[in-house]
Simulated scan of single mutants.
Amino acid sequence: MSRYSDDAELAAELADAADAITVERFRTQNLQVTAKPDRTPVTDADTDVEDAIRGVLSGRRPGDGVAGEERGGSIAAPGRVWVLDPIDGTKNFLRGVPIWATLIALLDGGVPVVGMITAPLLGRRWWASQGGGAWLRDSAGERRLSVSRVPQLADAYVSTTDLNNWAEHRTQEAYLSLTRACWETRAFGDFWHHCLVAEGALEVAAEPVVNPWDVAAAQVLVTEAGGRFTDLDGAARFDRGSALSTNGLVHDAALAHLRRR
């Protein structure tokens, strides 16, 4: 049993609270939308979810820090810090595409030790805790996750988020070099392709630009499923601005295409 089992149970309660808000607000006509300085949208559903989670944490874990996409906070604070992305995939949420999720992670000493990803319109919830394995619940029930055993890129499925991001934040040629080495390419994007790596459905998920709250939960999910998670330069960190999830077997080969030249 993981030493963080109680925290994982609390993360499930937080996910339930988030789902109650996001499901009710999805495809409603009265969303209030503003743009952040980076031009990404934020809705009042985002802020309502984060506020609800913070409210529960203030009563249940008053000594823990909280860092959220919408309300701020420091992931570098000492001790335990909950990291929140109330709606990952806000653009999908706004356009009526049902691929979005609430991401919840717990850091202990700066290391993700609990991850919870809940995507209610997909009917799927993924979670993991350090030493407790990675899990999925969907319409087929609950099962423990394990990454694929595909040993080489030539047989691998690879996914990214937005190809244009590679031109702005890395190089498109680096990613295209990787895709040419792989069997199939997709663009599932955001939280979902990291979850698919943990499930064993994909071998590689690569993103040239991420925020810490985008991938903290994914790091513990992928690693507990037996995979490997780093930034695009090979550091096993979620807070360096990029992300690479793999089944582990093809990780170094993928990095060889994606490292800065």
Rank of each mutant, 00 (worst) to 15 (best):
D19E: 15
T90H: 08
F191C: 03
L10E: 02
S58I: 10
H251W: 09
L163F: 15
L176E: 05
R80D: 09
G123C: 07
I21G: 08
G241Y: 08
L10W: 02
T34I: 14
W183S: 06
A18C: 14
A187K: 13
V81R: 02
A134Y: 08
H193Y: 06
G79F: 05
R240T: 14
R71F: 15
V56L: 15
L249W: 01
T161G: 01
R144K: 14
V33S: 09
R54F: 10
E207P: 06
A205H: 08
A17Q: 13
W192D: 01
V49G: 07
E24C: 11
S148F: 07
D48W: 11
L221T: 05
G227M: 03
L178P: 00
T40H: 04
G131H: 09
T102K: 09
G189D: 11
R228N: 00
L232C: 12
P112I: 00
K91M: 12
P120F: 01
L14C: 01
Q130T: 06
R54C: 09
P112W: 09
V158Y: 02
E70M: 06
G200A: 01
F229I: 04
H257K: 11
G72L: 10
D252Q: 10
G189I: 00
V56M: 06
T28F: 09
Q29F: 13
D155S: 15
D214E: 11
G110L: 00
P78C: 12
S177R: 12
L122V: 06
L84Y: 05
A11N: 04
G110H: 06
L122Y: 06
A198Q: 07
G200C: 00
E184K: 14
R60H: 05
V250A: 05
Q130G: 04
A8C: 13
P151L: 10
E207L: 13
V158S: 10
A187H: 15
E207V: 03
A181L: 10
F93Q: 05
R61Y: 02
W192R: 02
D46G: 09
Y157C: 06
N247P: 03
P208A: 14
D231A: 11
E24H: 14
A134Q: 08
I21S: 03
V220K: 08
D46K: 03
L84I: 15
A156K: 04
A11W: 05
T28S: 15
E173I: 09
T161C: 13
I99L: 15
A174P: 03
G234P: 05
N164L: 12
V97W: 13
R144I: 02
